[in-house]
Design a protein around this nucleic acid. Sequence first.
DNA 1: TAGGATTTGTGCGTATGTATT
DNA 2: TAATACATACGCACAAATCCT
Lengths: 238, 238
Amino acid sequence: MTKRTSDTGKTIAERLEAAANAQERFQIMYGEIRDRICMLVYPPGSQLGEEALADEFGVSRSPLRKALQVLEADGLLRSQQGVGTLVTEVDIEELTQVYQLRMELNELTGKLSPCLPTRELKALFSEMRKRAQDLRNTPTRADFARLNIDFFHAFQQLSENQPLRDVSEKLFYQTCRIWLKLIPNMDLAKEVDIFCGEIDDIVDAVELGDFQAAAFTRRAHLSMGFIRLKAQKDTASH
Amino acid sequence: MTKRTSDTGKTIAERLEAAANAQERFQIMYGEIRDRICMLVYPPGSQLGEEALADEFGVSRSPLRKALQVLEADGLLRSQQGVGTLVTEVDIEELTQVYQLRMELNELTGKLSPCLPTRELKALFSEMRKRAQDLRNTPTRADFARLNIDFFHAFQQLSENQPLRDVSEKLFYQTCRIWLKLIPNMDLAKEVDIFCGEIDDIVDAVELGDFQAAAFTRRAHLSMGFIRLKAQKDTASH
DNA sequence: TAGGATTTGTGCGTATGTATT
DNA sequence: TAATACATACGCACAAATCCT
């Protein structure tokens, strides 16, 4: 079966064919590979293979390698001559510092250049609440991970500080795989329930137009989520 | 005249020749080009030329392009087919958000995983104080910029939070060129004097082992420096 | 408007490094 | 230890885009 993107129904090769220039092609490849990494289509430790990927994407290795190189700079891949291009491991101990920083940055989201509470913004979060409700009814690992990613991007839109957005996004993609990795050892329905409750809290704050409250709430949730992850890791190792 | 690096006295081509593997070669090229950009050897808006650079470095375009591509992801370069590889412009208005974020992150440097006040660390800052004294005696643009960069890296070592260091470094290199760009319109001796006074303040705090005080002091200096830059920009435009 | 000069983007063959047998 | 398989790194030639005359 040929892989197709969720939105458009087109294959990657078709999307790349339709791209206007090299920068668009780069964005498509970069985004697609990053998505596969954080959805564990490419699990930590797995090998990518430049030629196979280039073949699937319908391009040569040269433009593909640019995407791989930037993902390596992002800390998601590691390429070494003679060995291969490997997806980096995610270890909760090593991610502790990233999580600490992410918590502080989330607080800044409500502080630096908060957006105005537009109708579009509220509609976006309303949509998130609805998707959370659907997820609660039929919880799956993949939908949980997908909503986690999409809700992150929605939250990002609460601040107009673009550097803050860029930095937060990099750090998010360094950490988000840990959930999919550890959730098999956890109670999926329970975690989904907690996560959807958190979304409800934040959407409540957004609908009131209080973005700073939304940011503090999210910071608290991040902190508690990290503690649950650590607890999970501790029980798994005993 | 062949360009040589300040430290070793070797040309870039020689250093690349001596590198053990591709990753080292990448780091050498990446660091060298970034340094030239923020020292205004390549001023904003100037064009790089892949073939000329590859020729100087004694490599082909392929490995050079990897360095350029990551620098483009860092926001220091912009490549476009048919146009060239151009150094990005630095505008104080656009950097306002970066500066805001940098100020907050500097506060975190004293908060997240502060290092222990080792002898090596104090010696490093003592060296900075000495260099500041030398700069005061004979102030030059280039030495000012160099000390600014080196002092930043020294300050980074006050926190062991590696993600915070990485993020702070990226943001620093996005902003540091603004000083060299605007200093011709300012009083160099006066700015050097202020900067060296700031170094004295921070080194005092470091020698007392109070890294949090050092971080708060630096945050205050960043804020005041930004205000001076903005004021300069306003007077220049009238 | 057309065409030539220049630049980056792409494709592909080869070199080089690593792991395994 | 040597040979082999296989991966990325590299170098080069050509395609495509842009700019200027």
